[in-house]
Simulated assay, not measured.
Amino acid sequence: MRPHPGAIRFRREALKVSLAKLSALTGISESHLSRVEHGKAGLGDENIRRLAAALDATTVDITHEEKP
């Protein structure tokens, strides 16, 4: 799975969740989350699943994967 930077940031901002809060919820550092949101870093499948759960989304919602 490849994270979709725009979708992740849009979802996070829509929920009014800071990078600090998202970091606390997922265990992914704020700096890494910021790089992901800017398309400069990726995430492994497990971190994508944790990020999706924290954003109350599916992995399809925040990745470049197609809906089944």
Rank of each mutant, 00 (worst) to 15 (best):
A24H: 11
D56L: 11
S29N: 05
R11S: 14
G39S: 13
A14Q: 15
A41M: 00
H38E: 08
S23V: 09
S29M: 05
V60D: 12
A14N: 14
A57E: 08
H64S: 08
N47S: 15
H64K: 12
R11N: 06
H4C: 13
S31Q: 03
G39L: 14
T59I: 05
T59D: 04
D45T: 14
K21D: 07
P3K: 01
G27H: 09
L25I: 00
K67I: 10
V17M: 15
L33H: 07
E46K: 07
R12W: 02
L15C: 06
L22I: 12
A54D: 03
S23K: 08
P5F: 08
R9K: 12
R12P: 04
R50I: 00
E30W: 00
G39I: 14
E65C: 00
V60C: 07
E66K: 08
I8M: 02
S23N: 10
P5N: 09
L55A: 11
A53G: 10
L15W: 11
V17K: 15
D61H: 11
A7H: 01
E66H: 05
I62A: 12
R11D: 03
A14P: 02
K16C: 08
I8L: 01
A14H: 07
I28E: 10
K67Q: 11
I28P: 04
E13V: 07
S31K: 02
G39H: 12
R49E: 15
H32C: 02
T63P: 03
A7F: 00
A53W: 05
A53L: 14
L22E: 11
E13D: 14
E46F: 06
R49G: 14
G6M: 09
T26W: 06
K16E: 15
I62K: 13
